[in-house]
């Protein structure tokens, strides 16, 4: 696929909705299309995080590997979701595994290239950071609620409180 063809795909992706045209064009310069087969990893814990993904199709599982326990599935992501913000924050390494549960189509954005562009174009940087901040807030809230173990363990949480 020609690089310029990605502009409409980026514009239509939920994560970038409303991003001014000139910034979309800048992003296109850092974007490429990728397909992942079922079972293939989009990223591996500890590896260098140079990219992030805009998911177009398929299911991706965010997992953490625990010695003795094996993999734990923390979250599933689908079309419209964004995967990866480790490229934004030093030391730019992946904190989780992400694996294609089904065949996946995604746009890969080159984080290294974007970091450079954000250094010179603060407006683009602001738009991107605002979007990532929203996602981070949602995932953090989700993670905190998950931590409460609401359906199963309300008992333990409450009785501790009561003491």
């Amino acid at each position: 696929m020609e690089v310029k063809d990605l502009a409409p795909v980026l514009e239509q992706h939920a994560f970038l909705a409303g991003l001014p045209k000139q910034h979309v064009d800048l992003l296109v310069g850092c974007a490429s299309n990728r397909k992942f087969d079922k079972g293939e990893y989009l990223c591996r814990q500890g590896e260098s995080a140079e990219v992030f993904y805009l998911l177009r199709d398929g299911i991706v599982a965010v997992e953490l590997y625990l010695p003795q326990k094996g993999g734990v599935r923390l979250e599933t992501l689908r079309e419209g979701d964004v995967l990866g913000w480790s490229w934004l924050v030093a030391p730019y390494t992946w904190h989780f595994d992400a694996r294609a549960v089904t065949p996946v189509r995604a746009i890969v954005l080159d984080g290294k290239c974007l970091r450079g562009k954000c250094q010179t174009d603060y407006e683009l940087g602001y738009h991107l950071f605002a979007r990532f901040a929203t996602i981070m807030e949602q995932r953090l809230e989700s993670a905190r609620l998950q931590l409460l173990d609401l359906y199963g363990g309300a008992k333990e949480v409450r009785s501790r409180d009561a003491r």
């Binding site: 309300a154 008992k155 949480v157 009561a162």
Partner: peptide
């Protein structure tokens, strides 16, 4: 009474 507001797992008004 603490037990007055009890729902499974604990009391609401501790």
């Amino acid at each position: 009474h603490l037990s007055f507001s009890y729902i499974h797992g604990g009391s609401v008004r501790t």
